[in-house]
Structures are given as C-alpha cells and as structure tokens.
C-alpha cells in the first residue's frame, strides 16, 4: 500500500491543480509574442462587439464637405475618405465584419474537415476515396479555388464565406485524419472495442476529444488566412461590395487616392497586418503550449 499512499498524497496536492485549459493558457501567455497576439485579438473582439458605441459616425454616412481629411483631424482622428466617411468608424465596423467572416468560415470548414478526417482516419475503406477528394481540393491554389467558387456563385460576402469554408476543408481533413490514425491505435480504443462500444461512440467520445490540440492550432492559424483571404477577395472586388466597410474593400477604394489621402489604404492595411499577424503568433504559441512533450502533468 505504500506506493499507493504516496500517490494518494500526490492526488491530494493535485486537487488544487488547475484544469488543462488554464494550464495551456498560462503557458501561452508566457510566450511574449503570443501574448501580444492575444491582446490584439482581444482588442479586435472588443471593437467588434462594441462597434456602434465607440464610434461617433455612421460608417456609411457621407459628408462631402469633409473629404480626404488626414489622420489627426479634428473630430476624425483617423481622417476621412474620399466621400468624407469617418475612417475610424469604418475600421471598427470592418473589424466586426472580418471577425464574423473569419469565425463563420473557419467553423464551417472545421465541421466539414473534421467529419471527413474522422471518417477517413477511422474507416480504412473510406480513406482512399476521401483523401483523393481532399487531394483534388488541395491541387487548386487556394485563392484560385475561392475565385472559382465565387465566379460560380456570384460576388457577395456570403459566397466569400462559402468559398473560404470549402478551401479550409482539405487542410483540416488531413490534420484530423493524421491524428485519428495515431489515436485509434491507442489501447483505450481497443479497450472500448472489447467492451463492445459502437464505432460512433468510439469516434465521438474517445477519438475526437484526443485530437483537439491540432484542431485548435489549425483553427487559429486558419482564422488568419481566412481574414486575409476575405480582404484579398474584397480587394479584387469579389467579396464585400462598396460601401460595405470591409478592410480589403477599403484598401481597394483608397488606391486611387494613394497620393492625396494615403491613410485610406495604410490604416486598413495596418489593421489587416496586425490581425493576421496576431492570429498567426497565437496559433504558433498554442502549438507550443499544447505540445504533449512540454506537458508536465504526466
């Protein structure tokens, strides 16, 4: 009993130990860059949530007597664009838009990708079929695939979401399949089989929860790509249409005024850069924080 008594004591101490989530979070914020990213994302989130409250102007309201005001002008601290719309309020509403588009497309992409990945990883028979389909999607350069889908569906923000979702599926499917392949060889899966558990139960309750780490990292990184692609597509005129305050569209609108009002392109450009960078470094940080080799709880 001696060894068990010691273990008992250890458990007593562990009781105070925080959950895995807190642990990961703690490890994440130790990483300075990830912490910076987290703060940027938090700011964007706050901006998105409280958008109408923190801006003084309607982002669509034109004021032709105050066009192309530069940064630091009175009443418009980020200036106005060529129609006299307040750049700050457009930026804030753009933050909301890019977050909504990013989250929706990543969630839809994840649902599709996880489903395909689980099936391909668990059922050997489906593996070949599903993964060839995934390869097919992969064979297209992402932005071209998105443009193709938009060309078929028509230009609108909703179609951008659909296109980016579809583009997210193959990457997610591959990552999930890989994790499933390793997790399904674990003995606890075998133990569940010997208990007579159904495949559905094994997949959803035992395999999927043990594949979450790579999925979380993928989702975070994918947010960055999603936001960037939405802007890129909008810049090309395939996504949000004017006068929607979308960052990519704002840059596109500003390019004719590069000399007279450079802030029209620079401000949304910096916003995109910051947010994309933030999601990327947080994704990187999460990858390290979730790495089982850095886990101390074993």
């Amino acid at each position: 009993m001696a060894s068990e008594a010691i273990a008992d004591k250890k458990i007593g101490k562990d009781k105070k130990k925080e959950s895995r989530f807190i642990q990961t979070f703690r490890r994440l914020v130790k990483n300075k860059l990830a912490l910076f990213g987290l703060i940027v994302i938090l700011i964007q989130l706050l901006m998105a949530v409280s958008a109408p409250a923190i801006v003084g102007y309607d982002p669509l309201e034109q004021n032709l007597s105050e066009t192309e005001l530069s940064v630091g002008s009175e009443g418009h601290w980020l200036g106005t664009d060529n129609y006299g719309r307040d750049v700050w309020s457009r930026l804030v509403f753009g933050a909301r838009l890019s977050l909504i588009v990013g989250v929706t497309s990543v969630v839809i992409g994840l649902i599709g990708g996880i489903a395909l990945g689980l099936l391909a990883g668990y059922y050997k028979k489906l593996d070949g079929l599903i993964m060839r389909f995934v390869d097919l999607l992969f064979a297209f350069p992402g932005i071209l695939l998105a443009m193709l889908i938009i060309a078929m569906l028509g230009t609108s923000l909703v179609n951008v979401v659909i296109a980016i979702s579809i583009w997210s599926i193959p990457g997610c499917a591959r990552i999930v399949r890989g994790s499933v392949l390793s997790v399904k060889k674990q003995e606890y899966v075998l133990a569940m089989k010997s208990l007579g558990a159904s495949d559905r139960r094994i997949i959803l309750k035992h395999i999927l929860p043990n594949c979450t780490a790579p999925i979380i990292v993928f989702a975070t990184m994918r947010m960055a790509t999603s936001i960037l692609s939405t802007s890129a597509l909008s810049f090309l005129g395939l996504g949000a249409q004017p006068p929607t305050p979308e960052w990519g569209a704002m840059i596109a609108a500003g390019q004719d005024f590069m000399w007279s009002a450079p802030h029209m392109t620079i401000v949304p450009g910096i916003a995109i850069m910051l947010v994309v960078f933030a999601f990327n470094v947080v994704g990187d940080g999460l990858r390290d924080a979730l790495d089982p080799n850095m886990n101390v709880d074993n």
Partner: peptide, 24 residues
C-alpha cells in the same frame, strides 16, 4: 490490459469511463 494507463482515455474522468460499460 497490461498498461492500464494506455487503456484509459486521458480526457475522460474515471467515473465516466466506468459508466460507459453500463451505457453500452
């Protein structure tokens, strides 16, 4: 099984793991 750690799902509480036999 030989290695009881490997046969327990690390993301599942012990009680839930045992309960599953009855659920199934």
């Amino acid at each position: 099984f030989q290695d009881p750690y490997a046969t327990l799902n690390p993301r599942q509480r012990i009680g839930d793991a045992l309960e599953e036999a009855f659920i199934i």
